[in-house]
Amino acid sequence: MEADRVLYFAASFTLFGLVLLQWMALHQPRRVANRLLIGTYLLFLGIQGVALGFSAAQWGLLGMAHPWPSTMLVVEGALLLTLLLEDKARATGAGAVVASLAFVVHSYALLLGVPPTQTLEISPFARSVWYGMHVISALTACSAYLCAGGGAIAYVLLVMFRATGRVLREVSPADCLSFVGRALVVAFPSLSASAVIQALWTYLGWGSYWTWRPAQLWLLFLWLVVAITLHVPSTRPGLRRTAAVLSILGCLVAFLGLPLLGSTLTAVW
């Protein structure tokens, strides 16, 4: 087995440990030390980072736009953002759901995904600094959306369980929504940057800002979803739920469309 594959499996095990620790911390905060949680986060980020470094050396920096390594990059980014955005002083439940979602995505890519072949035939149009910047900002946005989706799922679950009386008393749904907002604040500029750079890349390549190619449609669609989410006022509970549902929808769109991002890497026009 190749070194990077071994490292990805090691990262997967660490991530599974992190998921368990996150859920334990939610139920019994005193039994799981904050330092242990942060240490596990850093361990995962380190192993996954080294594995990604191996992949970049193998397929080149542009090769990281392929759906398989880009999924791995998104998981790394999402966990890093969770570490930065989550309020460590208060358990929000968002971190646990994000880690669980990240584990599902990571395992799916590892077990069922198809890594790029050695001879990745990169299109001459993709050999551009603009294309690289567009992909990096889109992946950052997807990472932020994974966080937002996780936080929104946590919010919806908390609101549902609160209604039925089965509730984690220390965890506040408002904190979950606050986490979603922070993640969207990262997602929106990243998506804007990605859409703008993609339009510039398209203009430089073909002389037109807009094409009906799936990758460009997907990005604009995602941008519109996040713009709608940020415009929904969250002053009333009903609207907060709408914002949470929109965040989950955006997260779904982001992940279903992620392979489209890499499709332009080897496309022939």
Partner: peptide, 9 residues
């Protein structure tokens, strides 16, 4: 800031 869903904490 307007319509935010952040900053409760």
């Amino acid at each position: 800031y307007a319509g935010e869903i952040t900053g409760t904490h």
